[in-house]
């Protein structure tokens, strides 16, 4: 696993049914573009998060394909509707095959 990868997500703890909520996510990752060279002039191989998904109770909210032009420590903000209480699952897919995930519960009244 790439070192120091740490996801952060911000989801409201409560919402009313059908309400639009804003979600923010950030993960610490170098997003090595594959365009840079090291001090000896060798290309530093690409190593990025290439996909990010957000799901709620098994249904998809957003599915993002990332290219090397996404900044270090990839940040996303988007909106979701929550029909009932449940759990968001956020998943990041690394070029090296690693998968990072985290989840957040929300109470819907």
């Amino acid at each position: 696993m790439a070192s120091g990868v740490k996801p952060r997500v911000k989801v409201p703890k409560t919402a009313s049914a059908g309400e639009t909520i804003t979600i923010k996510t950030l993960i610490s990752h170098k997003m090595e573009s594959g365009q840079r060279k090291d001090d000896d002039g060798n290309i530093i191989p690409r190593s990025i998060i290439n996909r990010f998904t957000a799901d709620f109770n098994g249904q998809n909210v957003i599915d993002v394909t990332l290219e090397p032009a996404i900044s270090t420590n990839p940040y996303f903000q988007f909106e979701a509707v929550v029909p009932e209480s449940g759990e968001f699952t956020f998943t990041w897919y690394d070029d090296d095959g690693d998968v990072y995930d985290t989840s957040k519960k929300i109470e819907v009244s």
């Binding site: 998809n60 957003i62 993002v64």
Partner: peptide, 30 residues
């Protein structure tokens, strides 16, 4: 897309059934 980058593709957002507004924010390299 970013037309002055070495690779033009930046990202694709696919919106699922529970997406509210079809909007998204991110931070990119130019």
């Amino acid at each position: 897309f970013a037309d002055g980058n070495p690779v033009p593709n930046v990202a694709t957002f696919k919106f699922g059934p529970l997406s509210a507004s079809r909007s998204a924010s991110t931070r990119i390299r130019l």
